[in-house]
C-alpha cells in the first residue's frame, strides 16, 4: 500500500478527536472521506500533513515512516477549503511558488507554469492578481500551485465548499482530469454525499474520530449510516403523485 495510517489518535485537552484510526490507500487513487463538521476530518488531514502531532499511531508513505519528518520533508500538500492565494503574487507567481521554494531554475518554472495554466484553462489570466479572479478560477490556481510541485500525496479539505453548484461541478471534473494526467494520490474530505461518491475511487465514512472504509461503493450505498438511502427516499417521495 502506498499510504498506510495505523492506529492514529489525537486529543485536544480532554476531547478525543481522532480515535485509533487506520486506513490504507493505493498509489494514484483517491479516497473520499464523508463526514459531518467536527467529526475529525480536518485533524486527520493535518496529522498526515505533519501540521499536527499525533498522540499515538504511525503514518507510512511508500514504506517510509513519517513521524519526525517536517511538513516540507513529507512532500504532502494540504489544500484548504479557502483557496489561500498569496495576494501579493500574480496567478503565475502563485502557481510557480512551490517550484521557487524548491529553487528550480526560473526558465523551467516558466515552462511548467505555462503548461499548468493551459491545463487549468486559465489562458490569458497569468498576469492577473488573485483579487481579479472569480471563485472557480482562484480554486483552479490553488490546485495548480499544489499539483505542480508533484506531491506524493494531496490532501483536500472540502476544497469546493465555498463554490456555487455549477462551478463546483466543473471543478470536480477538472480535478478528476488532473488526477488522471498527473497520477495523483489523494484524500478528498467532504461533507457532501454526492461529491464523496463522485470523487473517490474508494470511499469512507468518518464519525466521532473513527473511519469506516467500504470495500466497494455498493456497500456504501446500502449502509443506512451514510444517509444515501434517506436521500433516495426523499427524492422518490417528491416524485410520488400524491405529494
Amino acid at each position: 500500500m502506498f499510504l498506510e495510517v495505523k492506529q492514529l489518535s489525537k486529543s485536544f485537552q480532554k476531547d478525543l478527536i481522532v480515535d485509533r484510526l487506520s486506513l490504507s490507500l493505493d498509489q494514484h487513487r483517491t479516497l473520499s472521506i464523508l463526514g459531518r463538521s467536527g467529526c475529525g476530518k480536518t485533524t486527520l488531514l493535518k496529522l498526515i500533513a505533519g501540521l499536527e502531532t499525533a498522540d499515538q499511531g504511525s503514518i507510512w508513505v511508500n514504506g517510509e515512516e513519517m513521524s519526525g519528518k517536517t511538513p516540507a520533508e513529507r512532500k504532502i500538500v494540504y489544500l484548504y477549503q479557502e483557496d489561500l492565494l498569496f495576494p501579493h503574487l500574480t496567478v503565475r507567481g502563485n502557481i510557480g511558488f512551490g517550484l521557487k521554494l524548491q529553487k528550480v531554475a526560473p526558465s523551467q518554472i516558466a515552462e511548467q507554469v505555462d503548461l499548468m495554466i493551459e491545463r487549468l484553462e486559465l489562458q490569458g489570466q497569468g498576469d492577473k492578481m488573485p483579487q481579479q479572479l472569480s471563485g472557480g478560477q482562484r480554486q483552479r490556481v490553488s490546485f495548480g500551485r499544489a499539483i505542480i510541485t508533484n506531491p506524493r500525496l494531496l490532501l483536500l479539505d472540502e476544497p469546493f465548499g465555498s463554490l456555487d453548484v455549477g462551478t463546483r461541478q466543473r471543478m470536480q471534473e477538472l480535478f478528476k482530469e488532473l488526477a488522471a494526467i498527473y497520477g495523483i494520490t489523494s484524500l478528498f474530505v467532504t461533507h457532501d454525499l454526492k461529491e464523496a461518491i463522485l470523487m473517490g475511487d474508494d470511499i469512507g465514512l468518518m464519525k466521532k474520530g473513527s473511519l469506516q472504509i467500504y470495500s466497494d461503493k455498493q456497500d456504501f450505498l446500502l449502509d443506512p449510516q451514510t444517509g444515501v438511502r434517506s436521500e433516495i427516499e426523499f427524492w422518490e417521495s417528491l416524485l410520488k403523485p400524491n405529494y
Binding site: 500533513a49 505533519g50 501540521l51 517536517t70 511538513p71 516540507a72 513529507r74 512532500k75 504532502i76 500538500v77 494540504y78 484548504y80 479557502e82 489561500l84 498569496f86 511558488f97 512551490g98 521554494l101 524548491q102 500551485r145 499544489a146 510541485t149
Partner: peptide, 18 residues
C-alpha cells in the same frame, strides 16, 4: 488565516524562514 498561509508554505516544501 495568517497561520493557514504559513502552514501552506510548509506543506508546499518551504521552510519557516522562507
Amino acid at each position: 488565516r495568517t497561520r493557514q498561509f504559513e502552514q501552506l508554505v510548509l506543506t508546499l516544501g518551504g521552510s519557516s524562514n522562507q
